[in-house]
Amino acid sequence: MKLNKKYWEQRYAENRLGWDIGHVSTPLKTYIDGLQNKELKILIPGAGHGYEVSYLHQQGFTSVYAVDYAAAPLQRILKENPDFPEDQLIEGDFFELEESGFDLILEQTFFCSLPPDLRSKYVQKTFDLLKTGGTLSGVFFDFPLTEQGPPFGGDLELYRELFQPPFRIRILERAYNSIPPRQGNELFFIFTK
């Protein structure tokens, strides 16, 4: 199975969006609500329907970027937020993203949608995209790694092994505020470059 642009476009066309909870994720909303600097340069990779993107925009964050293989979810973000800067919605491959200097990368389901053989590449790419002192934060799924994905899963020890180094792990723990269907299956994290 090739998880390429065609694959993801088809998933959206067929509305096969099992990861889509229909609103901003509770752990990420809580984290966003604690951010004070509205000028942070923020990236959301694999943004999907972009609930986090929309929420950040509605809260007054001015430099929010979203990247996704599929055009449909990016178009939906723009439709729901007509004043969103269109040049900050990037249709393409996250691994080919050239924009950099991000203060924060927010992770919500993208990492666990990647085939496990791309995970080390993700770690390096997020590290490269962030400014020194920048933060990678969000949630990872916490269930046994599987070949039957996406999502492919993983656990605390696997994530610790992948991300440390090059990141400094500030928090990596079970999310206390997951939505009921994901309770006990999400880890919240904050990593620093």
Rank of each mutant, 00 (worst) to 15 (best):
M1F: 08
R160S: 09
R174C: 00
D128M: 02
Y55F: 07
R11A: 13
F191P: 00
T135K: 14
L172F: 09
G138R: 08
V53L: 06
S113H: 10
L56A: 04
Q148L: 11
L40Y: 10
F141G: 13
F163K: 01
H49S: 10
E52G: 14
N15K: 15
L130F: 04
T26C: 07
T126Q: 08
G149L: 02
P73N: 07
E157L: 11
N4C: 07
A66S: 08
D83L: 11
F95I: 06
K5A: 15
G101S: 01
N37R: 13
L74E: 02
N185Y: 11
S113V: 13
Q108T: 13
I171C: 12
L78A: 14
I179E: 07
L97I: 01
G34C: 12
E173T: 10
Y159F: 10
L145K: 15
M1D: 00
L3E: 06
K131A: 04
D93F: 12
W19V: 12
Q164V: 06
P150K: 11
G50Q: 01
I32A: 15
K2T: 11
Y12N: 01
Y51H: 15
Q58E: 14
V64Q: 06
L97D: 01
P166R: 00
G154K: 12
R160W: 02
A72V: 11
W19N: 10
I21P: 10
E147N: 14
K79D: 03
F191V: 02
Q58D: 02
A70H: 05
E147C: 10
L106Y: 07
